[in-house]
């Protein structure tokens, strides 16, 4: 059995074990209502984590995703607000937010790819700079009073009439994004290049791959995904707050990536894995709630699960060499 397959089976096994355990602990866990709730909660983590997956596959990391989300959401909301919050204005806001995220990612990626500064440092700087910029941009005052239309994605549901039970609109966006990322990773030259860069960047360069361009693009996609995550949170909250996602969302995203089994040293992993990772973390907290574990205890548990997953991957996913 190939190590990839072993590792994929390990992830499936862990997911199944969680599923079984959670169902026993909390009979309500597998109900549609609960799962809908979980999937709605993890939307932003999945978006940020999926973008980050591309960066992590190259052997890098993007610690600035939560700050990027806040800055992009504030920029988009201010643009939409200035244009009067009509439907055209909302479209403008979305474009401005996504463009902001992509631009921020492009700048960070360029510093990594062209100047050779370690990604950890570049995006650690980005984490503070962009958060500060979000506050400066709106003078610390959240852009509130979103019209109802702007809250649809975050709170709304689709297919209500078809299914009896409805699907959160955010889930549709998130799943589409993950699926698109997975297809890009598996079926495009760009995806192939990301794996090669993370697996051996010098080999990728000597094989004639556009290493710098693709590195920059990976950070740009991560910025774009972070902006989408920021919009999702803002839509749900009905306001774009510079404090948005300040409670360590970037770390949740890293955790989802790692728990999914994407290697932090690059070259191994996938977008779907990150989705599963985010779902596991997102499921764990409500179950712990049900057990009466308070939030600090939950932090301890989540951290230990991440560590356990890393250990499991280390021993299951590696072949002998």
């Amino acid at each position: 059995m190939s190590p990839q397959r072993r590792s994929a089976l390990a992830l499936a096994g862990v997911a199944f074990a969680f599923l079984a355990t959670f169902s026993i602990i909390d009979p309500a866990f597998l109900t549609v209502a609960n799962q809908r709730n979980v999937l709605q909660q993890i939307g932003a983590t999945v978006l940020l984590g999926t973008g980050m997956t591309l960066v992590v596959l190259t052997g890098g990391i993007d610690l600035a995703v939560a700050s990027t989300a806040a800055l992009s959401a504030v920029a988009g909301a201010m643009a939409a607000s200035a244009a009067g919050f009509g439907s055209g204005a909302l479209a403008l806001g979305v474009v401005v937010a996504l463009a902001t995220g992509a631009a921020v990612g492009t700048v960070q990626g360029s510093i990594v790819a062209l100047a050779g500064v370690p990604p950890f440092l570049v995006t650690l700087a980005g984490l503070t700079v962009l958060r500060g910029a979000a506050f400066l941009l709106c003078d610390g005052v959240p852009v509130a009073n979103f019209p109802e239309a702007a809250r649809g994605i975050g709170r709304g549901f689709v297919l209500e009439s078809w299914l009896g039970s409805s699907i959160p609109a955010s889930l549709v966006v998130v799943v589409a994004f993950v699926a698109a990322a997975e297809i890009v990773l598996r079926r495009t030259a760009f995806g192939r290049s990301l794996y090669a860069i993370g697996g051996n960047s010098e080999a990728a360069r000597l094989a004639g791959l556009p290493v710098r361009r693709d590195l920059i693009a990976a950070y740009a996609v991560s910025g774009l995904a972070a902006a989408a995550g920021g919009l999702l949170v803002a839509s749900r909250q009905g306001s774009a707050d510079p404090k948005l996602a300040r409670e360590g969302l970037e770390l949740d995203a890293v955790a989802a990536v790692v728990l999914g089994g994407t290697s932090l040293s690059g070259g191994r992993g996938s977008a779907i894995r990150t989705f599963v990772g985010a779902w596991l973390i997102g499921s764990l907290r409500p179950v712990l709630n049900h057990l009466g574990v308070e939030s600090y205890g939950q932090d301890v548990a989540v951290g230990l699960v991440i560590l356990a997953a890393a250990l499991l991957d280390r021993f299951m996913g590696r072949g002998r060499d």
Binding site: P3, A196, A203, G267
Partner: peptide, 13 residues
Amino acid sequence: RALGLVPDRPVRE
């Protein structure tokens, strides 16, 4: 090893 192979990827890639 250093300049040629992408060790974790399949032979095909």
